[in-house]
Amino acid sequence: MLRKTFEGEIQQLKDDVLLLGSMVEQAILDSVEALKKRDVKASERIFAEDAAINKKRFDIENKLMVLIATQQPMAHDLRLLASTMEIISELERMGDYAKGIANINIRMGDAPLLKPLIDVPRMAQIGADMLHRALTAFVNEDVEMAKSIPIQDDEVDALYNQVYHELMMFIIQDPKTIERANWLLWVAHNLERVADRVTNICERTVFIVTGEMKEIKATDDEFWKGQHS
């Protein structure tokens, strides 16, 4: 077969993206788990480990540059490499959200959680699950699967909405809770963004296969409307 070496390098590249994705997925779940348990030590570890995610992203980016320079990719190959560049950037930013959540837990110090975390871990679980499936769709170049994932973003948005209103109630009832409520709002916001970025990955996967660049869905407008009404 022609281009056997190149095919092998593409496979290796996809494996690297999967590895980066699993690091990010774990960081998201761990960051929320540490917050839930108020385990500052664990958060410090997650905060430090973000450097490994960043390094992995740069390693993959470098490999991509070398492949583009040496293999002159065209058509599907070109779409795959260009999209992978986007996808690893999305993953790295998701890693930053996990780091942000870890940082909140560290900065909270001895202050207890405003409320037991129920919806926030659910948001993390759904986001991580979406990410996992989005990367499976990417590796297998499965358009139908990629298109089916962003609908779950609605669940995350609904949970965020719920958390938001709940925290607003705390603030209204007792303005002294503002800072603690705000911390949790940031955590929820970060998780809401994770789901949005998963949608971007799914859009890239569809583009790799079909060559068509379009948004899979955009319910965000509705979401924000509900937020400020």
Partner: peptide, 19 residues
Amino acid sequence: IFTNPKDKRTEDYVTGRFG
């Protein structure tokens, strides 16, 4: 032709998989 060819044979040729 070089980013999104319609014909599979064009795709195979421009990506170097023809033959």
